[in-house]
Design a binder for these strands. Structure first.
Lengths: 131, 131
DNA sequence: TATGGGGCTTCCCATGATGGGAAGGTCAAG
DNA sequence: CTTGACCTTCCCATCATGGGAAGCCCCATA
């Protein structure tokens, strides 16, 4: 299977597959005599693993750790669980931050008449007026 | 006031102040005879405006739009309100996405024993097993 | 007045994950 | 054998931010 097929089968773009290989996240695959990369089902599974982990918000370095655990048949599931729980916590933190932003903005939006007049508590707030 | 003072007074790093000037987000400020940038209270207020908008999650291009409205004394508050409401919606979308990730992960974390054994539904899921 | 330290200037580089695109080789179908 | 789709590598751009070097400037203190 060529890289294009592997890309559509895994949901990872050909560009990114090469990038992952270049940065060592995934091992180099075999090549044909003319230099084409060749992929098997196992490689596609690996790429899908990465894709799924990215979709769950894991940063690249955490993905690398997850991959290492995936490959280690003697891993302790506790290690995996710890990584996943940390990611849950990270998501919670970012969600909380964004909820705060949203609440502040909603408050301002609510206070703004939204008509043709220039008076605007949103701009007043941004401008530092302690309304 | 030099750039360092303006930076600590506004919460925007000197690096970023120069960057904002270079990219045209803010107008060039005056210089001393020896080339030092000089800032006044009005400039600091402008920088704080940007900082605050960034803190509320507005991307740079939206900040530029907000700044344009801020400077336009004939703006309609409706325009400002629309930008703010769009930002609320953008935050909501991202929050929803992250909530989804979090829910999926929590489910997996919950299903994982987290002991010394290697069996792990988290890795199984990432690996594509339709558990 | 000389000196030293800290602040300022510009310029270049790096990030991280991704895409765009060019130049050139390869493969398969017609 | 041609054509078009695919592959290769290489370079560039993103976006907001920081790091750091080389060199100039300013002020306080000895």
């Amino acid at each position: 299977m060529n890289i294009g097929e592997a890309a559509s089968a895994s949901g990872v773009s050909a560009k990114m597959i090469r990038y992952y290989e270049e940065t060592g996240l995934i091992p180099p695959v075999g090549r044909t005599a003319s230099g084409y990369r060749t992929y098997g089902p196992r490689d596609v599974q690996l790429l899908r693993f990465i894709r799924r982990a990215r979709d769950l918000g894991f940063p690249m370095d955490r993905v690398a750790e997850l991959l290492a655990l995936w490959r280690d048949r003697d891993r302790a599931s506790a290690d995996v669980k710890r990584l996943a729980a940390a990611q849950v916590a990270a998501l919670e933190t970012r969600i909380r931050e964004m909820e705060e932003m949203k609440a502040t903005l909603q408050h301002l939006v609510h206070a703004c008449a939204g008509d043709n007049r220039p008076d605007c508590p949103i701009l007043a707030d941004l401008g530092g007026v302690k309304a």
